[in-house]
Design a protein around this nucleic acid. Structure first.
Lengths: 111, 111
DNA sequence: AGATTATATTCCTTGACATGTATATTCCAT
DNA sequence: ATGGAATATACATGTCAAGGAATATAATCT
């Protein structure tokens, strides 16, 4: 479980991150708002914390978790070169790129 | 294997998508450039095609695969609300949000 | 101190998926 | 038609992580 991508592949973890967008939360709050069993919340938070997505603060018996979104930058960076592709005239751009670096210039049938 | 996030969680699939950024490629080209066995390439391409990440064109015995990055938009959209968090003054923003929606206003020790 | 609340961890099971090997399919060339 | 190249599929295997149940740890309150 190293990759940032694997970590956000889990829907519950994404839900937790989204929940933390608005404010920090205790484990119990997350548990209630997302309707997940408490051990499950703790386990996902552990993964998120180890990967640097969240950090925790002690408040009595509670642990308050807050967002630390730096790791998401890696996803954003990976995504960057793809953005130009969905910039409206996708088709034109696609075809332009396809003309470069033709493997074998031959007749070609659309499937 | 429904989720866009799960699909790009696989490193080889991300590599294929990145390779297709510059130009369309045949399966054999992908195989050679990424040093992956051919069945593996075909299988990952199958997943990517089913999910709408790529489309294929027939060229003799070859299949040319090209990028179709629309599904990545979902990732980009999900990422959007997090972007403001890494906008330089992360700390200030964090603290601001933490002041809202306090669970129980009590003394709080930094961990 | 004992009871209660809040969170973390351990153990176990199960399912999903990536990979490898082998084989099937399809198309081209001679 | 036969052989070979390119790609896809089928089958078997191993791994890994998510999920559930139970329990451990830690802090609070009376």
């Amino acid at each position: 479980m190293e990759s940032v991508f694997e970590i956000i592949a889990e829907p519950n973890r994404r839900a937790i991150l989204q929940l933390l967008l608005s404010s920090q939360r205790s484990v119990g709050e997350i548990e209630r708002q997302l309707h997940m069993p408490q051990p499950m919340v703790s386990k996902h938070l552990r993964v998120l914390r180890d990967a640097g997505f969240v950090e925790s603060t002690v408040d009595a018996q509670r642990r308050l978790y807050r967002l630390k979104p730096e790791p998401l930058r890696e996803v954003d960076d990976w995504l960057a070169p793809f953005r130009r592709f969905w910039s409206a005239h996708v088709d034109a751009l696609e075809r332009h790129l396809d003309r470069m670096d033709e493997p074998t210039p031959r007749k070609r049938n659309r499937q």
